[in-house]
Computed example of a mutant assay.
Amino acid sequence: MTATETPVAIVGLGKIAVDQHVPSIAASPAFRLGAVISRHASMKGVPCYSSLGDMLAKEPDIPAVALCVPPQVRFDLAHEALSKGRNVLLEKPPGASLSEVEALSDLAKSNGCVLFATWHSRFAKGVPRAKEWLANREIGKVMITWREDVRHWHPGQQWIWQPGGLGVFDPGINALSILTEILPAPVQMTAAELEFPENRDTPIAARLSMRGSGKLAVEADFDWRQTGPQTWNIEVETDRGLLRLTGGGAHLEIDSRDVTDAEALQSEYDGIYGRFADLLREGRSEVDVSPLRHVADALMLGKRLVAAPFND
């Protein structure tokens, strides 16, 4: 530990916290893990609390909190931390609704706190280069194929099937976060088909149509029933060539030529904590809700289709 490391507390010690947040905090020169808040788990050598309120009362020198809990319970915890003057990092999606996130953004501003709504896929290795390459090109068709195995990534996690859990949009919003980052102009949702298992409250598959200015048209295919190799691809046709992002944004090809190559998820969370350190130093929040807005629009415009029951 050095004098320049900022202690950060993690709320929720589930898979994403253990696999991504904890290692990235450990690797960061800007942060150290100051505390863990969890009702069911603990971490050796780190102060552990069963409630956020207890931690806030007993750890006045921890200025930042990373919320790694399901979105349905995130608002109250973020509100509690911001009300106590702590800076907050939100896992994606930043909330269960747009109005929740907007309220938190207003609270952070009024209390002089930093609020960072993270989108980890934007920190994938190929994304910044893709954004740069597309900036001055006329974009035609965009095809997104985002198919994965929910049993592998969310084993036994019932919150994803409950209202506010997003269902297949939990991974699909990663694709939308990349899309909204790399396109030089916004797109609007025009139609959607959503497949809901007859025993679940959130969709297991979605097909989306979006349009932008000129010839820009986006089609997206999200599905949580794929087994074997996982598919996280975005293909963009332009007036000056074809761009392909694969591996969730880790691999970038331009006209079939490899431009960058990295393991999926590699350094994404390192990038998140690097950005959080910058925001804290600048005293500036970053809250982009455009990916979540596309999900909300899909749920508003979507035609509901009934799929076979899903059981873990």
Rank of each mutant, 00 (worst) to 15 (best):
P63N: 05
C48Y: 04
L82D: 00
P71T: 05
A64N: 06
P60I: 09
Y49A: 01
V69E: 03
L107P: 00
P60G: 14
A81N: 01
N87C: 13
M55H: 04
E102C: 11
G95A: 07
A64L: 10
P47L: 07
D54G: 10
M55R: 05
P63E: 09
D54I: 08
K44G: 10
L77C: 04
A57P: 02
R86D: 06
E100F: 11
R74H: 14
A64F: 05
P93V: 12
L98A: 08
V101Y: 03
A41H: 15
S105M: 11
I62S: 01
G95Y: 01
D61P: 09
V88G: 00
P71N: 08
G85L: 05
S99N: 14
E80P: 10
A41W: 11
P47Y: 03
Q72L: 13
V65F: 08
P94G: 07
S97D: 09
N87G: 06
E102A: 13
V65R: 04
V65K: 02
V101E: 03
L67I: 15
L56Q: 00
L107C: 03
V73Y: 02
V46K: 08
Q72M: 09
G85C: 08
L82T: 04
H79M: 12
A66T: 15
L52M: 08
V73M: 08
E80A: 15
M55N: 09
E59N: 11
Y49E: 00
A81E: 01
L77N: 08
L77G: 08
P70V: 04
Y49F: 12
A103K: 12
P63F: 03
Y49I: 01
D76T: 12
V88T: 02
Q72W: 09
D76P: 04
P60Y: 03
A81W: 04
P71W: 00
P93D: 08
C48S: 14
S50V: 11
A41C: 13
K44M: 09
P93E: 13
R74K: 15
L89P: 05
L98G: 05
L98P: 02
M43F: 12
A78G: 11
V46A: 08
M43E: 14
V46M: 07
S83Q: 06
V101W: 01
L98T: 06
P63D: 04
G53W: 03
R86G: 13
A78H: 05
K84R: 15
